Simulated assay, not measured.
Amino acid sequence: MIALGISKYNAEGYYDPTAYEGIRRAEVDTGKLKIVYPTGYMELNLEGFFPCPLDKARKVFSLIYRYSPEPDKDRLLAFLRRLEKRCFAQMQEYANEAAAYPANSDKWREYTAKFKEAMRLRQRTAKNIELFIAGRGGK
């Protein structure tokens, strides 16, 4: 297995896991946000946590505003914006698929349901972005 072009083996062919493990762990950590506060820390898996309901967003954003450095805040906002675009693209894809089938057919219902779910996730993500920007001071 190769991570970012880094092999488990060095140029001479000997097993050398140091560089490989460092790059592999860095790749895994890019999808996480660590919030270190006085009594402990919290590590969020961004893909699994967002979009989240507004009550959860308010709680976690409060911690992020107080204890996370600006680069982490910028990274979170960029992630949320990418997530919203991805949901919008899925909405378009499902709408196009549904249009290819007769109304009220099984496939039409399936893609319409997927469209509605993608729309709900996009709306929730948009609300998360709005709440995050408002609490951050409108940046």
Score class of each variant (00 low, 15 high):
Met1Gly: 15
Met1Asp: 10
Ala3Asn: 14
Leu4Phe: 06
Leu4Trp: 07
Gly5Ala: 09
Ser7Leu: 06
Tyr9Thr: 09
Asn10Gly: 01
Gly13Cys: 05
Tyr14Arg: 13
Tyr14Asn: 12
Tyr14Thr: 11
Tyr15Val: 12
Asp16Trp: 07
Pro17Thr: 05
Ala19Pro: 12
Gly22Asp: 13
Gly22Leu: 14
Arg24Gly: 01
Arg24Thr: 05
Arg25Leu: 13
Glu27Val: 14
Asp29Tyr: 05
Asp29Ser: 13
Gly31Asp: 12
Lys32Val: 08
Lys34Arg: 15
Ile35Glu: 04
Thr39Leu: 06
Thr39Asn: 08
Gly40Cys: 00
Gly40Thr: 01
Gly40Phe: 00
Tyr41Arg: 07
Tyr41Pro: 03
Met42Val: 14
Glu43Ser: 10
Leu44Pro: 01
Leu44His: 06
Asn45Asp: 15
Leu46Gly: 11
Leu46Ala: 13
Lys56Pro: 06
Arg58Glu: 09
Lys59Asn: 07
Phe61Lys: 04
Phe61Glu: 00
Ser62His: 10
Ser62Pro: 03
Leu63Glu: 07
Tyr65Gln: 14
Tyr65Cys: 11
Arg66Asn: 07
Arg66Lys: 15
Tyr67Ala: 07
Pro69Phe: 06
Pro69Trp: 07
Pro69Glu: 15
Pro69Asp: 15
Pro69Leu: 14
Glu70Gln: 15
Pro71Ser: 12
Asp72Asn: 09
Lys73Pro: 00
Lys73His: 04
Asp74Thr: 14
Arg75Leu: 08
Leu76Ile: 13
Leu76Trp: 00
Leu76Pro: 02
Ala78Phe: 04
Arg82Lys: 11
Arg82Leu: 11
Leu83Cys: 05
Glu84Leu: 05
Glu84His: 04
Arg86Lys: 11
Phe88Arg: 06
Phe88Cys: 02
Met91Ala: 03
Gln92Thr: 15
Asn96Thr: 14
Ala98Thr: 05
Ala99Thr: 03
Tyr101Phe: 10
Asn104Gly: 00
Asn104Lys: 05
Ser105Leu: 02
Ser105Pro: 08
Asp106Phe: 08
Lys107Ser: 05
Trp108Ser: 10
Trp108Glu: 14
Arg109Ser: 10
Arg109Gln: 12
Glu110Val: 06
Thr112Asp: 02
Lys114Tyr: 06
Lys114His: 03
Phe115Tyr: 13
Lys116Ala: 09
Glu117Ser: 13
Met119Arg: 08
Met119Pro: 01
Arg122Trp: 03
Arg122Phe: 03
Gln123Val: 02
Gln123Ile: 01
Thr125Pro: 07
Asn128Lys: 03
Ile129Ser: 00
Leu131Gly: 00
Gly135Lys: 09
Arg136Trp: 15
